[in-house]
Nucleic acid binder design. Structure first.
Lengths: 135, 135
DNA sequence: TTTGCTGCAAAGGATTTGCAGAGGC
DNA sequence: GCCTCTGCAAATCCTTTGCAGCAAA
């Protein structure tokens, strides 16, 4: 599936065993795993699983708005099943990612953009630094 | 230079012709070019320039806090010499990137994190959607 | 039965890196 | 003169894709 297809071609999805497993794995985690982490984890229950399938399913789940991807640094994407509005803080020393709840009035720009006629599909608020423990 | 060296090893930088050119190119632009775009542009004045050098210099300039990198989608990084606090809006249909000025009170989380002892090194607020013209 | 989904493996694309020589300071 | 920076090219890393068979609905 190409990037543009997401917009123009509304696919009819089937719930495969693998997709359910990816979704379940992400739901039952508190961290923000990479595709490779999910893959390693799921191989225990689905030995024949392939990494490509994990990527394809993460992509579809994001299109379905059931999960969101996070690009904190230039490295691998991370995934999150928590769809509540929140920011992420990454400590670049220990690598830990913290969820930061957001007050609704923090997203005033979003409302201004919408008022100007722009459609909002994704908002990412990512903060990188060194956490208190690592300083 | 490895990722971790940025933290532990404080390098003494020299201002090369190439680094000055990358910085100047970025300063004189209003868009948010990729490394490849800057490279294509600078080849006109520095024909022997290599893409690796562009990447290395963008990396160093970001470490020096003279520019910032932007990761809007899963694709190439973009670069911005505007160091004022602002958000970015990407229209995923036409690809245009808008700068969004931010009111200082929009970053309350940042102050809360700092109060809790965490050091903030970078804040990215990125919004993806479909702009008014493309709808 | 239809057509989306999978595993496999190869391809793709962006970024990084090792090296030997050039060039700031 | 020391040590950083460069061009080159190969390597790396993450992600995507083509294909033939499998499996939801």
């Amino acid at each position: 599936m190409k990037f543009t297809d997401k917009v123009t071609h509304m696919a009819i999805y089937r719930e495969s065993h693998q997709r359910r497993a990816v979704m379940a794995n992400l739901t039952h985690r508190r961290d923000h795993p990479t595709a490779a982490t999910i893959y390693d984890d799921l191989r225990k229950e689905i030995p024949a699983l392939s990494l490509g399938t994990v990527y394809r399913n993460l992509d579809i789940l994001e299109t379905q708005n059931r999960i969101r991807s996070i690009k904190l640094d230039q490295r691998e994407a991370r995934y999150d099943a928590d769809m509540n509005i929140h920011a992420h803080y990454l400590c670049r020393v220990c690598g830990k990612i913290m969820d930061l709840p957001l007050k609704p009035d923090c997203c005033q720009i979003v409302r201004e953009l919408e008022a100007a006629g722009h459609r909002i599909e994704k908002v990412s608020i990512d903060i990188i630094g060194t956490c208190a423990l690592c300083r």
